[in-house]
């Protein structure tokens, strides 16, 4: 089955964390324990949004040692395609939903002497499960967490209370900035760096670290892309003989699924590579929006990642 093993769950709790963020707790329907997972994992939440099927990835933020449930935090996006709005507006305690088994595309390197973490806004969520895991096993970490304002700094209170010497908070509203060059200069050899947050922040942290001589294998980041909204386009599915139209607020993957064609996926955010599909004919431009394909792959034009990428032109035929 595409997307791997599924977990039928019940929504146990919905908590308004601040003006933008709600937290959802999922438990099994029969009261059995949830599968164990590793810090940094995500789950794909399936939604039936009034007839539109949505599958969005969210980092699991709860303690991996807690098998009684999984928690995710969702930031409301008022201009996006609607997954977060559906969760915020329609998901209530007691509802039955389906989520995927946890998948980790942002794992901790367990050989690291130290973990240096940078979080921006909702990008804090994978670090919450990682820090819980490190706390159980004695791992050494240092977290730098920036948010727009004190009111929007989700979970800062619990983090600073539990780890007063290891967690450092910054607020844009108060003109506080992470002193990145100073922090990077003092890390012991064997440190690994992790960053999750807005694209600009990720690029700034990684570029600064590279310029300071940090080696690429010690740099880790995670950024899930929401499938971008675009113009409608038509695609021929060569293997099944169907021709489909992808609506402006629909991804190619969603349109393939809506046509009744089973296609592989894991993260649905352009990161994991699972949905990679061969291009059979292309007269036009593939809008590659993923993090998976290399520049050479894109130049060759033989592959497309239907979870986030789109097309503009006369004709596109893919092997699905």
């Amino acid at each position: 089955m595409s997307g791997g093993a599924k977990l039928p769950v019940r929504v146990a709790e919905v908590v308004q964390v601040n003006d933008l963020i709600k937290r959802f707790r999922f438990v099994t329907r029969d009261g059995s324990p949830m599968p164990a997972f590793s810090g940094g994992s995500h789950t794909v939440v399936e939604m039936d949004d009034h007839g539109t099927r949505r599958l969005n990835p969210y980092s699991i933020m709860s303690d991996p040692a807690d098998s009684s449930g999984y928690e995710i935090s969702v930031r409301r996006d008022d201009v996006g395609r609607g997954g977060s709005l559906y969760l915020h507006n329609h998901v209530t305690p007691g509802m039955e939903m389906v989520i995927s088994h946890p998948v980790n595309l942002f794992p901790l390197d367990t050989r690291a002497k130290k973990y240096l973490m940078f979080a921006g806004g909702i990008g804090i969520t994978p670090f919450l499960s990682q820090i819980a895991q490190l706390s159980h096993h004695g791992g050494r970490f240092e977290l730098h967490y920036s948010a727009r304002s004190r009111a929007l700094g989700a979970y800062m209170d619990r983090l600073t209370a539990a780890h007063p010497d290891r967690v450092h908070c910054y607020f844009d509203e108060e003109d506080q900035r992470i002193d990145l060059p100073r922090i990077l200069a003092n890390q012991p050899i064997g440190t690994h760096l992790y960053v999750c947050g807005p694209k600009g922040m990720i690029n700034w942290v990684l570029d600064t670290a590279r310029a300071a001589g940090w080696p690429e294998p010690a740099l880790h980041h995670e950024e899930f892309l929401a499938p971008p909204v675009g113009d409608a386009f038509t695609v021929q599915l060569a293997a099944t003989g169907k021709t489909i139209t992808v609506a402006p607020a629909q991804s190619l993957l969603e349109a393939i699924e809506a046509a009744g064609v089973d296609a592989p996926y894991l993260c649905r955010g352009g990161a994991c590579g699972q949905c990679e599909t061969r291009v059979i004919a292309c007269d036009g431009t593939i809008q590659h929006n993923d993090h998976w394909l290399t520049d050479e792959d894109r130049a060759e034009g033989q592959k497309i990642m239907p979870c986030v990428s789109r097309f503009a032109g006369k004709h596109l035929s893919i092997d699905r």
């Binding site: 791997g4 093993a5 599968p35 088994h101 946890p102 998948v103 894991l266 590579g273 699972q274």
Partner: peptide
């Protein structure tokens, strides 16, 4: 290797 990197828990 490509296949194994996508191996999922429970499968």
């Amino acid at each position: 290797l490509k296949f194994l990197l996508k191996l999922q828990h429970g499968a």
